[in-house]
Computed example of a mutant assay.
Amino acid sequence: MTALRPEREDVYGERPYGSYDGAPSAGPRPNHRGGRRSDPPTAPMPVIGGPGPGPAEGPGSPADGETMALRRIATPGSEGPGRPSDASSAAAPPAPAPGGRAARRKAAKRRGGRHGGHHEPAPAPAAAPPSGRPLSRVEARRQARQRKPGPAVLASRAVGEVFITTGVLMLLFVTYQLWWTNVRAHAQAGSEAHQLQDDWASGKRNPGVFEAGQGFAILHIPRLDVVAPIAEGVSNKKVLDKGMVGHYGEAPLKTAMPDARTGNFGLAAHRNTHGEPFRYINRLTRGDAVVVETQDTYFVYKVTSTLPVTPPSNTAVLNPVPTGSGFTAPGRYITLTTCTPEFTSKYRLIVWGKMVEERPRSKGKPDALIE
């Protein structure tokens, strides 16, 4: 076993060999295979920026043939008599873990890596200014430009607002057509029906010629639960849009009245919106009752046939003997007309009936209204 060399003073008057931070050396240093070996003391390294160069070392000096350590650059005034050096102020390196290579590896992993290194934290993004530091004018302008929306964003916002506004308007229009027009028409038709019955009870109205838009009868379709006033004419504004049933009483589509001895009593009404009294007349079948109530009489008709689709120009369905109805001789008929398909006015739907009973009001309601 090699004996330790006697300590000697540093050529510059610093710590003796074999010490670290002023403490004596802990003993032989471990080698790379886990054993221990004795290292000969090395010559002190000259301090850059120290008090001055020391004596030259040549062959035969203690540092000759030794491995040279990295030189440490000392800051001015950091060393000297009575002042600790940088090496003494720094933390001492971790002592080698006893127990061989496996123990040293475990200890190195616990310290942050196999070789005892530590991970540096990731640098902060360059764009983010330090905490508490006000932005410079250039940085403030750059951030303002980034926050300001571009032309494409502004255009997309404008288009989106137009679409939203259009959608809201369309929704309001559909609500008005499908709901509000029915509410208004039902109220107007109900008011007209009550007014007719009050006038009949008081004797204010008499059968005769009626003005356009004037109510003169009430239509009952028991199967569809329809009760609607009948007014003269088929004007949308004056009659149909008010939820009433219109009578074809004007040339060139003038039809007979219910009390005529022969003829065709032609009626029209909306199938959708504005009260839609004829919405479900396509459900009528042969034998269903249609009753027309006037001031003095109930006229009862029975459905005989239907025409699901025909062009609006087919006015022959209103003839005294309607074309396509199956009737071959003059009689007392009724014709109901409306638009088809629903929510369109492209074609017409026709329902025909034949009078089977004429009952005075003094005898009470007919069986078709009681059942």
Rank of each mutant, 00 (worst) to 15 (best):
G213Q: 05
T166E: 08
P258R: 01
A256V: 08
V226C: 09
R184V: 14
Q197G: 06
V239K: 00
V209E: 11
S191Y: 11
G266R: 01
D198V: 11
N206L: 12
P222Q: 07
G215A: 15
H274P: 00
L169K: 06
F173D: 07
A187K: 13
G215T: 11
P258L: 03
P229H: 03
L219P: 04
A201I: 03
W180N: 07
T175G: 15
Q177T: 09
W180P: 01
G190N: 14
G190M: 07
Q197C: 09
K237Q: 13
W200V: 02
L267I: 01
G275S: 01
T166L: 15
G249I: 06
D198M: 07
R271D: 12
L240R: 06
A260C: 11
F265Q: 04
D259C: 04
T273W: 09
P222F: 02
D198Y: 06
S202P: 00
A256S: 14
L224G: 12
I230V: 15
S202M: 10
W180I: 13
T175Y: 12
L219D: 02
P222V: 13
G190P: 05
K242C: 02
R205M: 10
A228W: 03
G246P: 04
T181C: 06
K204F: 07
H247L: 04
G263L: 07
L267Q: 05
E211M: 11
A187N: 10
K242G: 05
S202V: 07
G275A: 04
A251F: 07
M244R: 15
A269P: 08
L224C: 09
V239Q: 00
G213K: 01
I221H: 09
D241A: 13
H186C: 10
A260L: 06
A228I: 07
E192H: 02
Y176N: 10
R261P: 10
L253C: 04
K237C: 03
N206I: 11
M244K: 10
G213I: 01
T273H: 10
F210W: 15
